[in-house]
């Protein structure tokens, strides 16, 4: 259990949270960390964002839940998770032993549920921050996703803010008309950071059987296919808010990661790539050091938002 001896050249901050490097693993693609412990040196990562947790356990959707598409995949897992109590008793014992910040992704059906989970996790040893998934439907408001209405997104952010002293990151849904409106709303409501993008809603059909390839019919598209969309949204949001932005969407290589940092992201999350290349986060961390050297820079913070848009 030797902590990575990164120098401070890659260090970044999200609110009060210091990361040894900007490379985290995205929620839903890295389990509860332990699943990858034989393949990945967890102590080298900038942070681990664990599988989304709800107040009560959720069984998830019927299969088939995933389908591969061109340069991407669709998933309709249905937020299967062990619930907050079992998460604390069964999963935290491993996670709290890590010398890597653990960020817990939380989700709910109602504003109150978000607040309750945040309150329950406040003060639990080993948790460094919360990431709030607001792409879930608001059951009390006819199932409209929290993350598609600025007022609802702000209300959830405020409820979580009230319930915890932990840094909170709001994870935005890209399935909106104006991502900047959403970002500004959660910034004003007290978010310490914004992560984006969650998956883009899509579908795929088996033409032989004329059936949808997912039992849920529609699902979230992830992987390299969504990277240009994610990069555009990160650039728009980073240009509009003053809190740190965490870029997510199809990141596999250090070049992908640097695109997001140049567009204004302070940190990035590796998602679907964990499935097909578990070494991707470590390769990106190593590659960032080489990139700094090649660019003649001393510190990753000097790269953030330095996109040259003029001619």
């Amino acid at each position: 259990m030797v902590a990575a001896s990164d120098t401070k050249e890659l260090q970044v901050r999200i609110g009060s949270l210091t990361l040894r490097n900007p490379v985290m693993t995205a929620s839903g693609t890295f389990g509860y960390g332990r699943e990858f412990s034989n393949l990945v040196n967890l102590h080298r990562l900038g942070g681990i964002v664990v599988k989304g947790i709800s107040l009560l356990p959720r069984p998830g959707n019927p299969p088939p839940r995933i389908v591969e598409t061109a340069c991407g995949m669709l998933n309709a897992i249905g937020l299967e998770n062990v619930g907050v109590e079992r998460f604390i008793t069964e999963k935290m014992s491993f996670l709290k032993g890590l010398d890597t910040p653990v960020i817990v992704n939380i989700l709910g059906d109602s504003v109150e549920e978000y607040g309750e989970i945040a309150h329950r996790l406040d003060g639990v040893e080993g948790i460094s921050g919360l990431e709030v998934n607001i792409s879930c439907p608001n059951v009390k408001k006819g199932g409209v996703a929290f993350g598609t209405v600025p007022e609802m997104a702000a209300t959830v952010t405020g409820a979580v803010r009230q319930a915890t002293r932990l840094p909170i990151i709001i994870k935005l849904s890209p399935n909106v008309t104006d991502i900047v409106l959403m970002a500004r709303a959660v910034e004003e409501a007290g978010a310490d950071g914004i992560s984006l993008i969650n998956t883009l809603i899509g579908m795929a059909i088996d033409t032989k059987t004329r059936k949808p390839r997912l039992a849920n019919v529609i699902g979230g598209l992830s992987g390299p296919a969504i990277k240009p969309v994610a990069l555009r949204m990160v650039w728009q949001v980073a240009s509009a808010v003053s809190i740190p932005v965490i870029g997510i969407g199809g990141i596999t290589t250090v070049d992908d990661a640097m695109e997001f940092l140049l567009a204004g992201a302070t940190a990035i999350q590796v998602g679907t790539a964990n499935f097909y290349e578990p070494s991707a986060p470590e390769q990106i961390i190593q590659g960032m050091k080489e990139y700094l050297h090649q660019q003649g820079e001393h510190c990753i913070r000097d790269i953030i938002g330095t996109l040259q848009t003029g001619i």
């Binding site: 389990g31 299969p63 995933i66 897992i77």
Partner: peptide
């Protein structure tokens, strides 16, 4: 045999219904 994305227990894509009604 099922479709699966990771094989490691992370993607949760390879579910089948268990005898006890849980996946």
């Amino acid at each position: 045999e099922t479709h699966m994305a990771c094989g490691l227990g992370a993607c949760l894509g390879c579910t089948v219904p268990g005898a006890d009604g849980k996946y």
